[in-house]
C-alpha cells in the first residue's frame, strides 16, 4: 500500500511532463514541417538537418546538455523545466515528420480546387488542407504520445520525481524489491490504454472525411 501511494505520487509529474512536452513539440513542429515543405531549397535543407540532429541525439544526452549545460551556466532551470524542454525539442523533430506526412497525404486536387476558386495559399492551408492533414496524422501523433508517456521516465535521470523516480526511491527505502516496478508498469498501462482506445475510435470517424 505504501508502495502504491509512493508510485501514484509520481503520476501528476509524469502527466505534466508528457503533456507539456507534447504541447511544446506540437507547436515547434509547425515551422519545422513548413521548412521541410518549403519551395526554398536551403530552407528545406535546414529543416532536414535540424530534424535529423534533434532525432539523432539520444534523449538522455539532450537532457544532460540542457540541464547541466544550459540549465547551470546560462539560466537556472529546474529539473522538470529542463525535462519538458528536452522532450519537447525531441518531440518537435518527430512531430514535424508526422505533420509532413499528413500534409503530403492530402490529395493535390484539394490545393488545385481551392486555388481555382480563388482562395489564397494560407486560407487553403488553414481551412482545407491542415484539417485533413490533422485527420491523417492523428493515429501517428497518438502513437507518439503514448511512447512519449513511457519515454518520459528518462527525466528521472536528472532528478524529476515522476513515476519511475518514485518507484526507484520506494524500492530503495522499503526494500520491496521489484514490487514498486510492477506497480509502476501497471500504472503506465492504465494511463496509456485509454489514449489508444480514444485514438482508434476517433481515427475511424475522421478518416471517412479525407480526400484521397
Amino acid at each position: 500500500m505504501e508502495v502504491l501511494e509512493a508510485v501514484l505520487l509520481g503520476v501528476p509529474v509524469t502527466l505534466l511532463v508528457t503533456v507539456a512536452a507534447l504541447a511544446l513539440g506540437a507547436v515547434l513542429a509547425v515551422p519545422l514541417a513548413a521548412a521541410r515543405r518549403s519551395r526554398v531549397v536551403p530552407l528545406r535543407w535546414l529543416g532536414r538537418v535540424v530534424i535529423d540532429v534533434v532525432r539523432g541525439i539520444p534523449p538522455v544526452v539532450w537532457l544532460f546538455l540542457i540541464f547541466f549545460g544550459l540549465g547551470r551556466d546560462l539560466i537556472r532551470l529546474e529539473p522538470i523545466e529542463a525535462g519538458i524542454i528536452g522532450l519537447g525539442v525531441i518531440s518537435a523533430g518527430y512531430l514535424a515528420e508526422i505533420y509532413r506526412g499528413g500534409l503530403s497525404a492530402v490529395h493535390a486536387g484539394q490545393w488545385e480546387a481551392a486555388s481555382a476558386l480563388g482562395m489564397g495559399g494560407t486560407d487553403t492551408l488553414v481551412r482545407v488542407v491542415a484539417p485533413q492533414a490533422f485527420r491523417v496524422s492523428l493515429p501517428a501523433v497518438t502513437t507518439y504520445a503514448i511512447s512519449l508517456l513511457k519515454d518520459s521516465t528518462i527525466v528521472s535521470a536528472i532528478g524529476v520525481s515522476e513515476i519511475l523516480f518514485r518507484a526507484t526511491q520506494s524500492a530503495r527505502s522499503t526494500g520491496a524489491g521489484l514490487t514498486p516496478f510492477f506497480v509502476a508498469a501497471a500504472v503506465y498501462i492504465l494511463l496509456s490504454a485509454p489514449l489508444a482506445w480514444l485514438s482508434r475510435g476517433l481515427d475511424a470517424r475522421l478518416r471517412a472525411r479525407v480526400a484521397r
Partner: peptide, 25 residues
Amino acid sequence: MVFQSFNLFPHMTVLRNVSLPQERV
C-alpha cells in the same frame, strides 16, 4: 472550374463546401 475528380472538401458538409469560398473570396 470543374474537375474530373470533383475535388470537394471532404471534411465539410455540402453546404459548407459551397459557402466557404464565397466567404473567403
